[in-house]
Design a protein around this nucleic acid. Structure first.
Lengths: 232, 232
DNA sequence: ATTCAACTGACAGCTTTTGGCAGTTGGGGT
DNA sequence: ACCCCAACTGCCAAAAGCTGTCAGTTGAAT
């Protein structure tokens, strides 16, 4: 058995929440006690929270260990969404857990361009991630297929409007999903909160990657705003 | 630098989505090219999706890599619940992603006692994970505090009943949450689906760890059923 | 004070990893 | 058809890391 396999095995054994003696682990894995001490050392050094107490034994503090894993973008999104929902819907204990898990993941999966970086915007603490979530499939499909959307929207100050937009990018803000779009009505870029959309219909109207109205230019504009004159 | 550290570093480097030559990696990590080839082999063998093309270079196919992590039981539960909800509520693409993520996690975090192993039972495909979820805090608390619960229950065939139970273990079946409990009415162990509970109240009545009526004996009984005479 | 079991340091022997070398393979360009 | 590039493969000796044994020390509980 390779060393690395043995290390995972130690984790698996210790994971049951009960006490384990180095002696027993040694017997089970057919190595010397000394080696177990060294292995435990290695594991602790790489962040696995094994508590050892003299005269007592070993125990894993946090009972579940997630080995390295690959996620598709979609899976990461599902995870974020799930945590967002649980954070609001479930009982306080689970809320805490989902928030802490989300932050663990966020800390770790911040590869450029995959998870939207949190710009300085305020996060809207009152919104529900679930609200208006029913529109997501349509919006996602329209964004992919480059078809325009017709949206009944109610802005935060209660103003209702109907607009035709070119969906560019869906962004998740921690608790709120937004759609960055080119608004044909205002003839400008707009960020629409998905939970404020009363109605959302796909149209048969397609749109092209017109300069000045595409995602790239939108992002460029946002970046300019962030680095340039910072005026309300 | 240890080998395992080098492996993680390779992942980190390759994660940027751009092309990398073995030669460059070798220079950066101060090892020979030969070693890089071997390392990439190791990584691919352990499931990290690195694409290598002759004459081109290396790239990571899936852009998000989750390094090893420690989760509390509660966090794992939040994750499972979140995936269960997303699997039902969201659009098809996200559904797929949440299911595949859930199975990845399940495959990996299947330590005895932490995540309930999937016995041969049928999984109820029609239920909603969210249904009856409002009872979860009470049930969880009662399970921890060893206080009995009074439950209005409607079985699958429509039979309504009110029972006093000792909550022993909450189990997640992929789409349904159940409570394994000692039922004072039937004087036997019962598995109650949480989404079929109409009402669920904590009582002030505590219970002790009586042999024959505790979790250990319940699990033993289930195990006996699984390994012994397999009769409907 | 004794016991228990986690820990530590040292050293010889063993296993794995590494670098270098000499190839092969597949794709793209000329 | 030819060449070039860079991923890949097999082989071997040297280097590095891992392991077991042994002889201790430490901290906590009894």
């Amino acid at each position: 058995m390779r060393r690395s396999d043995r290390l995972s095995q130690i984790i698996e054994i210790v994971q049951d929440g009960r006490l384990h003696l180095a002696r027993d682990l040694a017997a089970r894995l057919e190595v010397s006690v000394r080696t177990i001490y060294r292995d435990v050392d290695t594991l602790v050094a790489s962040g696995i929270p094994i508590d050892g107490e003299r005269g007592v034994g070993y125990m894993l503090r946090e009972p579940v260990f997630l080995p390295p894993m690959n996620l598709s973008l979609m899976e990461l999104e599902a995870l974020h969404l799930g945590m967002a929902i649980v954070a609001e819907a479930a009982d306080p204990e689970l809320q805490l857990a989902s928030v802490s898990l989300a932050s663990k993941i966020a800390k770790v999966a911040s590869a450029r361009g995959t998870v939207p970086r949190n710009w300085g915007f305020g996060v809207y603490p009152f919104a529900q991630a679930r609200a208006g979530f029913k529109h997501m499939p349509k919006i996602r499909a329209a964004t992919r297929n480059r078809t325009k959307l017709e949206i009944d929207y109610v802005s935060l100050d209660g103003q209702a409007s109907t607009r035709l937009v070119r969906p560019l990018e869906i962004t998740y803000w921690g608790r709120v999903w937004t759609l960055s779009a080119w608004c044909e009505k205002r003839n400008d870029f707009r960020v629409l909160r998905i939970d404020r959309m009363e109605r959302c219909e796909a149209t048969s109207e397609c749109f092209d990657d017109e300069p000045g109205r595409n995602l790239e230019d939108y992002l460029a504009q946002v970046n300019a705003e962030m680095t340039g004159t910072k005026d309300g």
